[in-house]
Design a protein around this nucleic acid. Structure first.
Lengths: 153, 153
DNA sequence: AATAAACCTTCCCATTGTAGTAAGGTCTAG
DNA sequence: CTAGACCTTACTACAATGGGAAGGTTTATT
């Protein structure tokens, strides 16, 4: 039965040899090629080797790193903090206390941001319930925006 | 009793004449001088008149406008949206419906942002509760960041 | 009137993180 | 061998803000 390898797609040289150019690295990790280059310029990731044609070449370890970065970014860590987390990840003599400290700091910042947004939201909601929202020009929202407590300019 | 005007501070020419240069406008409205110039460059506010020495001169109407902008920014409206609100504010034939539409859109965006931050927060909180946070290097936070579901690079 | 302090001007640069484009070179499948 | 997919660097832009330099102006104080 020679039908066996009929559907089998050939692997490209790169795939066979287990390396990845930037486009495939981007697709696999969810980090755009643009960003991969940018992270390299920030020294967040090491300079990869190059093909003779000067194309960047990544290995699976590199992809793991990119993946790690993606996760950290998704959790709202800045690139600077992400770099810190990366170095902790690489350093096997790290203490988990330091990682936890970063995470708690991030949570605190999130809490602050959430609180702020909710306060704004409350104000806006309050204003909109008082606005007719019809053809008339009277509008408590605009009135509030132009209201000046310490007035008398 | 000539003591009467002892404590009375003289008003500067500008104050007497009721106009404001950029520094005082900034202090009074809470919008930095930097930003006042920037808003002018964006045509969010009109070009003010100038002194003979080329200093910007604002009147009380201008300050009200800056104040309006400050309020809108504080409520999280972008400068573009703020410009829109400003033109509605100036246009007495506006409908309150349009203002309300903008406010509701802003609320919706806030809700989305809040939800996203809360989801991130939950994930992080979950991770930190599982992290010992001591001298040992084992750390579920880092493990999670490096975890790769679709794996096999 | 002279001078110092406070204030203003324009112009340029930095930030944070991401995306777009142009002009050109390389790799690979057919 | 060639077309098309892919890659390279180098700019540009965004959104909003802040910082600073080099120089001119206004105001307060001697």
């Amino acid at each position: 039965m020679p039908a066996q390898n009929q559907v089998v797609k050939e692997l490209s040289v790169a795939q066979r040899q287990g390396y990845y150019r930037i486009g495939r690295a981007a697709k696999l990790t969810g980090v755009s090629a643009k960003m991969i280059r940018y992270y390299e310029s920030l020294r967040l990731i090491p300079k990869p080797s190059r093909t003779t044609g000067d194309y960047r070449v990544y290995n699976s370890q590199d992809l793991h790193t990119l993946h790690f970065i993606k996760h950290a970014r998704d959790l709202g860590f800045s690139l600077k903090e992400t770099g810190h987390l990366l170095s902790l990840w690489r350093n096997h003599r790290r203490t988990s206390a330091e990682v936890k400290r970063l995470a708690l700091k991030q949570i605190a910042e999130l809490d602050q941001k959430i609180e702020q947004l909710e306060s704004i939201r409350a104000t806006l909601t309050n204003l909109t319930t008082h606005c007719h929202g019809d053809h008339r020009p009277e509008c408590p929202i605009l009135d509030n925006l132009s209201y000046n407590s310490n007035s008398r300019y």
